[in-house]
Amino acid sequence: MFTGSKRVLLATFAALVPITLIGVFPLFMGRFQVVLLTEIIIWGVFALSFDLIYGYTGMLSFGQSIFFGVGAYVLTYGMTWELGLLLSLVMVLLSGALLGLIIGAVAVKVRGAKFFLVTLVGAILFHLVALDNRWLTGGDDGLLVPLQFGGVVDNFYLIYGVGLFAALVTLVIVRSPVGLVFRMIKGDKKRAELLGYWTDGYRILSFAISGALAGLAGGLYGYTTGFVSADFFHWSYSADAVIWTVLGGSGTVAGPFIGAALLTFIKESLSSTWGVIYPVFVGLLLIGLVIGFPGGIVGLVKRVASWTVSGKEGSTDE
């Protein structure tokens, strides 16, 4: 049986091993693998942004692609105006948070299926508007991002650092008193309100933080690929974030990264003939997860661990 502090120690250790391994990865691997891993970290941050509002605050949003697209374009214009990478990324974070506040304030007015729909329609609208305003977005031909990085490995370490930063910030937030309120709202919004919390305010806050993270992912993706287009707003990006999070384990910080890594890896390693069935595979996987393993991979690991370690003791979220 583990007491609270021992469990924290164990979890820290369990997290440090993969973090270190990923850190030394470029020393041993080729260019292709490093690029793939860079992409996986970006997708992990993106999925994490979704996990914050769904896994922690309980709002199933399909609107993450809005922030992804906006983040990518803000970075593009920041680089075009020669603000430098750091300032551009700060602008990306701020614009994501601001947009999150605005969209959140509108979306929290409705709940349940309506909420899902409002966020989905929001994503569709942003996509259409982006396609329609070529002067700003370049439409589906897109824009080129002026690049300034030295190479694949340099870029990897940049993304690695930002990814670690994002994961740490999220961890601090979800373990803070504010994070506890998020989880209370997920459990029973009505009850949290009765305890005196302004739940809509917290939901909007959750949206804003999530928007900043999703924008960050979009900015990093644009920066890495050197290209952005109106299709970054397409809601299928939102759907990807949903699937990665559910597979890895919602309501955990590690889950979104694990899910994103696994599915991106599978997708990339399928040959062109088998690549065709990838959507069918993901669809069936999602059905299976929802029915059999709603806790995802992390949930499964935790369950197995608590059986083998202490028989009955319930574990809590990390």
């Binding site: 299926a113 959507p279 069918v280 595979f281 993901v282 669809g283 069936l284 997860l289 929802v290 029915i291």
Partner: peptide
């Protein structure tokens, strides 16, 4: 469950569309 049925039927969507 609203959230889970959104996810589950979304899985059905992907499977049918992929098929």
């Amino acid at each position: 469950d609203h959230s889970l049925s959104v996810l589950g039927t979304f899985g059905v969507t992907l499977a049918l569309q992929g098929t």
